[in-house]
């Protein structure tokens, strides 16, 4: 239970006092902060509305003349709210956060190429190497290679969209409670690892394409 610094009444941890509407100094998870149920499928408009509504209630701009403990609750509560909103707004960070809430995390040291991506990764690396090697050569050749690279870039987008679809599928299965948590967690980790890998590849390719464009 948390005590409200404005009305001194106690309530369950959340950011807006249900009794008086003032800011509460609570430490909550991101879903609770935004007043949402702990579900992975989120309607982004609804999320934004929740963020704006709660911001209007507890933002420090509304407590300039309030006592220090109310101001502190407003500041901390708003910081937690904005951080939670940022995490939940993006499905990838939401997935990673979900794992954290389950006491798990996406291992950073795992750089193995996900099996489903092996072929694509090989192609991207090969094309990147060719493009880099052609930097000093004639314009025509590197233009041709850049065009190939653009095709690869589209393949990467397709793979990314597929992975994001899978992520959303996984989210739906968590929410429905149909499958076992252990299998869902393994699946979530695998698809997030694949997304992380694809993101790095896309960044590398974009950087290379920008270099070509600049030259």
């Amino acid at each position: 239970m948390v005590q409200c610094p404005s009305c001194a009444r106690r309530s369950e941890p959340c950011l807006v006092c249900p009794q008086c509407g003032g800011p509460l100094p609570a430490e909550t998870d991101g879903f609770t902060a935004l007043g949402l149920p702990p579900k992975l499928v989120i309607d982004l408009d609804e999320l934004e509305r929740a963020y704006h509504t709660i911001s209007r209630r507890i933002h420090p701009d509304h407590f300039v003349a309030s006592p220090p403990d109310v101001r502190a609750a407003s500041l901390k509560g708003t910081a937690l709210l904005t951080r939670s909103y940022r995490i939940l707004r993006d499905s990838i960070s939401r997935g990673i956060y979900w794992l954290e809430l389950k006491g798990d995390k996406l291992s950073e040291s795992n750089n193995r190429v996900p099996a489903e991506l092996a072929e694509l990764v090989f192609e991207v690396q090969e094309q990147l190497a060719e493009l880099r090697a052609s930097r000093d050569q004639s314009g025509d050749q590197s233009k041709g290679l850049a065009a190939n690279m653009l095709h690869v870039r589209q393949d990467l987008d397709i793979a990314m969209n597929r992975a994001l679809d899978e992520l959303n599928g996984n989210f739906r299965r968590w929410d429905s409670g149909a499958a076992s948590e252990a299998s869902l967690r393994g699946e979530l980790k695998a698809v997030l690892a694949r997304i992380a890998y694809l993101r790095t590849l896309i960044r590398d390719v974009d950087r290379e394409l920008e270099t070509v464009e600049a030259a």
């Binding site: 708003t78 904005t82 951080r83 909103y85 940022r86």
Partner: peptide, 8 residues
């Protein structure tokens, strides 16, 4: 470009 106030 993180919205403020924010804390970590």
């Amino acid at each position: 470009n993180t919205t403020i106030p924010t804390s970590v």
